[in-house]
Design a binder for these strands. Structure first.
Length: 269
DNA sequence: CGAGTGCCCTGACAGC
DNA sequence: TGCTGTCAGGGCACTC
C-alpha cells in the first residue's frame, strides 16, 4: 500500500517532467461519479505548476487557481503508459512528446479530483495533516506534543496522520519495531525517551525506503512501471511467526484499529 | 471532541 | 473445475 516513500518516489518522477505542461483534457475513464473524482474536468486547459506532496496526497497546483489532488489509496498507480485495464482517469498533456498520464486503480480506493487551491473541505485528513517527517523541522518534541493528544493505541494514533504525516500500516509496524514500542501502548503514555526513539525510527525507515524507491508488495509501481525494492528490508510487516531479527523470538500478529499488526512480543514493550 | 466501527472495492488464495 | 469464504486496508461517515 502506497505510503510516504512510495508517494514521494512518484512525486519525484512526475516533478521531473510535468511542471509547465498544459492539461489539454482531463477525463474520467470507468470511474465512479462522486467525490473521489470531483470536478476533474475543471483541470482541462490549466497548466501544471508543480508537483507537491502532503503525507500520502499528491498536490498539483494548476494555473487557473485550482489544485489537482491525487491519492493512490490501496492500488492506485500513476503511469505514463496505458495500463490497459482498471484505468479510472486520464490526462492528455501538451508538449511534443505526446506523453499522457494514466491513473489506474483496481480497487477504487484512490482519488483523483480537483479543488480550489488549498480548500480541503471534503478532505478532513488532508486538512488536519500532521508535520512532514522528512522535513528538517520535524523533531521529537513535535512528535511528543502530537502523541499527548491521544489515549488511543500508538498504532491507531499514527494511522490518523495527525501526529505525523504519511505513515501507513507497513511503516508504522516497522517504526514501532525499530523503536521497541508495543503497538498497543497508549500514545500519551509514551515517554519522551521513547518518543525520541520513535522519531529516529520513523525518519530512518522512511529515508531508507525512499532510497530503495519504496516497497512493492503487489500493486505499487513507479511511474515507469518499475517496482520498489524495500520489501526485502522489512523487519516486522508481514513477518508474523518468523523470528525477530533482534531477539529471535517469533513475531506476533494482532489486529489493532482494524489493521493487521506484526510486532515482537519480547522486545517491544 | 475523541474513540471505535462499518463501509467501500476487487483480486488472490485456501478449502472443499 | 468451480464455488464460497476470507483477507488485504486508507480514509470517511457515523455513533456513542
Amino acid at each position: 500500500m502506497p505510503e510516504l516513500p512510495e508517494v514521494e518516489t512518484v512525486r519525484r518522477e512526475l516533478d521531473a517532467w510535468l511542471p509547465g505542461r498544459r492539461i489539454t483534457r482531463a477525463v474520467r475513464v470507468d470511474a465512479p461519479r462522486g467525490p473521489k473524482y470531483a470536478r476533474l474536468q475543471r483541470a482541462s486547459g490549466q497548466r501544471i505548476e508543480g508537483v507537491d506532496r502532503r503525507g500520502k496526497f499528491l498536490l498539483l497546483p494548476l494555473s487557473g487557481g485550482d489544485e489537482l489532488i491525487v491519492h493512490l489509496g490501496m492500488t492506485g498507480v500513476i503511469s505514463d503508459r496505458d495500463p490497459g485495464e482498471h484505468v479510472r482517469a486520464k490526462l492528455m498533456l501538451s508538449g511534443r512528446s505526446r506523453r499522457q498520464l494514466y491513473f489506474q486503480d483496481v480497487r477504487r480506493f484512490g482519488r483523483f479530483l480537483v479543488v480550489k487551491a488549498g480548500v480541503y473541505d471534503g478532505l478532513p485528513t488532508l486538512a488536519a495533516m500532521g508535520p512532514e517527517p522528512l522535513d528538517p523541522s520535524f523533531n521529537p518534541a513535535m512528535l511528543h506534543v502530537g502523541l499527548q493528544r491521544s489515549g488511543a493505541p500508538i498504532k491507531s494514533c499514527l494511522l490518523s496522520q495527525k501526529p505525523v504525516a504519511g505513515l501507513g500500516n507497513i511503516y508504522i509496524d516497522e517504526a514501532l519495531w525499530r523503536a521497541r514500542i508495543h503497538p498497543r501502548t497508549a500514545a500519551r503514555r509514551i515517554s519522551k525517551i521513547k518518543t525520541a526513539r520513535l522519531h529516529e525510527a520513523i525518519v530512518s525507515v522512511l529515508r531508507q525506503s525512499l532510497e530503495a524507491s519504496g516497497t512493492t508488495l503487489s500493486d505499487y509501481r513507479r511511474v515507469d512501471g518499475e517496482e520498489g525494492e524495500f520489501a526485502e528490508q522489512l523487519d516486522a510487516y508481514g513477518r508474523a511467526g518468523l523470528p525477530c531479527r533482534r531477539c529471535d523470538h517469533p513475531l506476533s500478529h494482532d489486529t489493532i484499529g482494524q489493521r493487521s499488526t506484526c510486532f515482537c512480543g519480547r522486545c517491544q514493550r
